[in-house]
Nucleic acid binder design. Structure first.
Length: 424
RNA sequence: GGAGGGAUGGCCGAGUGGACGAAGGCGGCUGCCUUGAAAGCAGCUGUGGGCUUACGCUCACCGGGGGUUCGAAUCCCUCUCCCUCCGCCA
C-alpha cells in the first residue's frame, strides 16, 4: 500500500510510476475520486455524530420527563440519518481500499524503463561458466541416473511438478540449506523458524494478496494459506507492532518450504526441478529506517552473492526494469546463476527494497529516537537462495565425464565423508 | 472433541449504561530541590482518521465483527486468541 497522501498531493507521480511499469494508470484517477467522495461523506456523518454525542449527554442531565423524551426523539432521528450515511461512508471506503491495494509502489528513478527481461541491466558478473571436454548433461538426466532425483515417483504421489530427492540428493539439499543459514547467521541475521501456514491477513500484509490469489494454496476449511515464501511470515512477525528505533535494523533469516500453484505459468519450465509447486528456500529479511534502506539493500545483495561465491557458482547481478519489478518494490536486483546443463541463467534470488509498502499494509511502525510521530520502517527481502535452481546448478556445473558429481567443499561437513556422488 | 475462566493504555490493574479516553500503581519525560545522583515534591505522558492558513475543532478505538439503546469498556450474539480441567492423538 502506498501513502494515500501521494494520491492526494502528487497523483501524477503515482500515475507516472504505473506507466513506467507498463500498467494502466486509471486506478489512480479512481482513487482520487473515491477519496474525495469518502472524505465528503465522512465530514457529513461526523458532524451528525458530534450532534448526537452532545444531545445524548444532555438527555442524561434533563430531569423533566417531557423535555427528556423530546430530546430522545430528536436524537433518534439523528441516529437514523447516521446509520444511512455510515453505510455510504463504508461503501466509499471499501471501494477506495480495493483500488489502493492494486496500486503498486513507485519505482525509484534509477530503475530502468522497460517491461521485458531484456530491459534488465546487468550490473556485474562473477566467475566463469565451466568448460567441459564432453557434452554436459542436464539435471533431469543426471539426477535420475545418479538415483538422487525421482520425477516419476514424485508425480505418482503428488502429481506433475513434484519430485522426490533421495539419498545423497536429499542430503545435498539439506547441506546447502544448513550452510546458507549458517552463513547468514555469520552475516548478522537472526535465524527464525516460522509457521508454514498463515492467515489471509498475513498474506495481504506482505502484498501477495489480492494479486497472487490464483497462485496460492489455500485451506478453505480454515481459511489458511500455505506459505508462498517466508517473506510473508517474516513480514507478519511484527504485524500490528510498534518497534523502537534503537531496535533497528533487524536482520532475519529463515528456512521454509514454499508452495505455489504456478497456475499462471502453466506450460513453462515443465521439465526438471526449475519450477515446481513446492520448493525450499532460505530467506533474508530486514526492517530498517527509511534513511538506511538503500544501503541495506546493497548489503543484502552482497550477502546473497557470498552464497554463490562459496559454492563457486558463476552468477550475474541484474537491476530489474520497472515492468519486471514486483509491485511491492521500489527497486529490485536479481541474482542469476549459470546452469551448465540447461545452458541458461537461472534466477535464484530477487532482492527488493519495498520501502514502507509492506509496513503500511501490515501496520508495522517504529517510535523515532528523539520522540515525535510514529513512522513506518522500510522492509527488504531477498532469497539467499532458492533451493531447486541452486541444487540443479551445483550438480550440472560439477559433473564429470563419467556422470559423477563433485560436491562443493563448503558442504562437506554435512555430507558424512561423501565428496563425490557416483552411480551405484 | 467436551466443560469452565479470561482478553482494558508501554507494563500491572480498577471499572456502576450517561461523570470514562478510561481510577490507581509502575515505567518514561519535564521542573523544583541537590556539588552530582538517589529520595522527595509538582506537572506531563496512547493511537489513527477527518476538517482548518492557523490557534484549534471533531470522530473512532477498552481482543475482532455484529446487535440493543437517545447514549455501550459496561447489556446481548458471534468469532479469534490465551489459561484450567477431561477426553483423544503424532
Amino acid at each position: 500500500m502506498i501513502d494515500i497522501n501521494l494520491i492526494r498531493e502528487t497523483p501524477e507521480l503515482v500515475r507516472a510510476g504505473m506507466r513506467k511499469r507498463g500498467m494502466d494508470s486509471s486506478p489512480v484517477d479512481e482513487a482520487v475520486r473515491l477519496d474525495e467522495q469518502w472524505r465528503a461523506a465522512l465530514v457529513e456523518v461526523e458532524t451528525l455524530k458530534a450532534e448526537r454525542n452532545k444531545g445524548s449527554k444532555e438527555v442524561g442531565q434533563t430531569k423533566d420527563p417531557a423535555e427528556r423524551q423530546k430530546k430522545i426523539d430528536a436524537m433518534k432521528a439523528v441516529g437514523d440519518q447516521i446509520a444511512a450515511l455510515e453505510a455510504k461512508v463504508r461503501e466509499h471506503e471499501d471501494a477506495l481500499n480495493a483500488v489502493m491495494s492494486v496500486i503498486p509502489n513507485i519505482p525509484q528513478d534509477r530503475v530502468p524503463e522497460g517491461v521485458r527481461d531484456e530491459d534488465n541491466i546487468e550490473i556485474r558478473r562473477w566467475g566463469e561458466p565451466p568448460k567441459f571436454d564432453f557434452e554436459p548433461k542436464t539435471h533431469w538426466d543426471l539426477g535420475p541416473e545418479l538415483g538422487i532425483i525421482d520425477f516419476e515417483r514424485g508425480a505418482k504421489i503428488s502429481g506433475s511438478r513434484f519430485y522426490v530427492l533421495s539419498g545423497a540428493g536429499a542430503r545435498l539439499q539439506r547441506a546447502i540449506i544448513a550452510w546458507f543459514l549458517d552463513l547468514h547467521i555469520r552475516q548478522g541475521y537472526t535465524e527464525h523458524y516460522t509457521p508454514f501456514v498463515v492467515k489471509e491477513e498475513t498474506v495481504y500484509g506482505a502484498g501477495q494478496l489480492p494479486k497472487f490469489r490464483d497462485n496460492l494454496y489455500k485451506d478453505h476449511e480454515e481459511d489458511l494459506y500455505l506459505l508462498p515464501t517466508s517473506e510473508v511470515s517474516l513480514t507478519g512477525l511484527h504485524m500490528d507492532e510498534i518497534l523502537e528505533e534503537n531496535q533497528l535494523p533487524l536482520y532475519y533469516t529463515a528456512y521454509s518450504p514454499c508452495f505455489r500453484r504456478e497456475k499462471m505459468s502453466a506450460g513453462r519450465d515443465v521439465r526438471g526441478i526449475k519450477r515446481g509447486h513446492q520448493f525450499d528456500k532460505v530467506e533474508m529479511y530486514k526492517y530498517c529506517t527509511p534513511e538506511t534502506s538503500d544501503e541495506e539493500l546493497e548489503k543484502m545483495v552482497n550477502d546473497a552473492e557470498e552464497t554463490c561465491k562459496g559454492l563457486n557458482l558463476p552468477y550475474r547481478v541484474l537491476l530489474k526494469c520497472a515492468g519486471d519489478t514486483s509491485e511491492a518494490a521500489m527497486v529490485s536486483y536479481d541474482i542469476e546463476i549459470w546452469g551448465a546443463g540447461v545452458n541458461e541463467w537461472l534466477e535464484v534470488s530477487s532482492i527488493s527494497n519495498v520501502g514502507d509498502f509492506q509496513a503500511r499494509r501490515a501496520r508495522i511502525r517504529y517510535r523515532p529516537e528523539g520522540g515525535g510521530a510514529l513512522r513506518f520502517p522500510h522492509t527488504l527481502n531477498g532469497s539467499g537462495l532458492g533451493m531447486p535452481r541452486v541444487f540443479l546448478s551445483v550438480i550440472e556445473n560439477n559433473q564429470r565425464a563419467d556422470g559423477s558429481v563433485v560436491i562443493p567443499e563448503v558442504l562437506h561437513p554435512w555430507m558424512g565423508g561423501l565428496t563425490v556422488i557416483e552411480k551405484r
